[in-house]
Amino acid sequence: MFGDIHGNLPALRAALADMRAQGAEAFVCLGDVAMDGAWPRECVAEVAALGCPVVRGNADREMLEAPRPFTPRGLPDEREGWEIGNWGREQLTDGDRDVLRTYRPTVSLPDLLCFHGSPERDNEELAAGTPEDRLEELRATHGQQAAWVGGHTHKPLLRTLDGWTLLNPGSVGLPFERRSGGYVNLARAEYLLIDRAGGGWQVTFRAVPYDVEEVRRGLLASGMPHAAWAAGDWVAE
């Protein structure tokens, strides 16, 4: 299980190579494939080549929508992010957009439900602090599978509830953490291995380091707006 690639091809390739080395036999992508990185088209193609189910994330949906006017929300660096998102949208061809249209709101496998934000909304955050009442409300509508796996928060999660487990693999291409009063992006590709074991699920979280300079070089060579600003946010482990 992997997702939140956000146009980061070196991270995606590092994650996929590690999955194969770990003996992964099947893949599910949890969405947010292309937006915000230097390689939007390449990431769409790399995921498509897997032939696996892909969930539609909020960023995938936004890539198919007309650009919205910039509306300040009082967040740091929001105009830069908005302009980079628009640039990524413009890189896609009609064929790339056709691929994004094949992404699904949810992917249901035997005793396993996969989504992006939540089964109801692609931008809802299900996290360690989400009230159990909200989770049970979602389960009453969307299914009683023993494991639910979502993305969107970019934070790994294993939360055990009454008879089921809520999981998040973290982010392949844009894991972040707060340092010195700001945020940095870490050159580690996060994903999740999940296997059947003893009638339940065995879960392994993976975080694969890769060359941060390859990401920085790609951003600076991409032609995206604010490339130097974006490259400055990346750090090694």
Rank of each mutant, 00 (worst) to 15 (best):
P110T: 06
D111G: 14
L112F: 13
F115C: 03
F115T: 03
G117W: 01
G117E: 00
E120P: 03
N123P: 10
N123K: 12
L126P: 00
A127Q: 05
A127V: 10
A128R: 10
A128W: 02
P131V: 13
P131W: 10
L135C: 04
E136P: 02
E136G: 01
E136K: 10
E137F: 12
R139C: 07
A140M: 06
T141C: 11
T141H: 13
H142I: 04
G143K: 09
Q144F: 08
Q145Y: 11
Q145T: 15
A146Q: 13
A147G: 08
A147I: 13
W148E: 01
V149Q: 10
G150I: 04
G151L: 07
G151F: 05
H154C: 07
P156G: 07
R159W: 06
L161C: 14
L161R: 14
L161W: 00
G163M: 13
G163W: 15
T165V: 15
G170I: 09
L174G: 05
F176T: 11
E177G: 15
E177K: 15
E177Y: 14
R179T: 08
R179W: 02
S180N: 10
S180E: 07
G181Q: 00
G182Y: 03
V184W: 00
N185C: 05
N185F: 15
L186C: 11
L186E: 00
A187N: 05
A187G: 08
A187F: 07
R188H: 08
L192V: 08
I194L: 15
D195S: 15
A197L: 13
G198A: 14
G199W: 14
Q202W: 14
Q202I: 03
V203A: 04
V203S: 05
T204C: 14
F205A: 06
F205I: 03
P209C: 03
P209A: 06
Y210I: 02
Y210N: 03
D211S: 10
V212Y: 07
E213S: 12
R216P: 09
R216I: 04
R216S: 03
R216F: 08
R216L: 06
G218D: 00
L219P: 05
L219S: 01
L219T: 08
L220I: 10
L220S: 04
L220W: 03
A221H: 04
A221C: 02
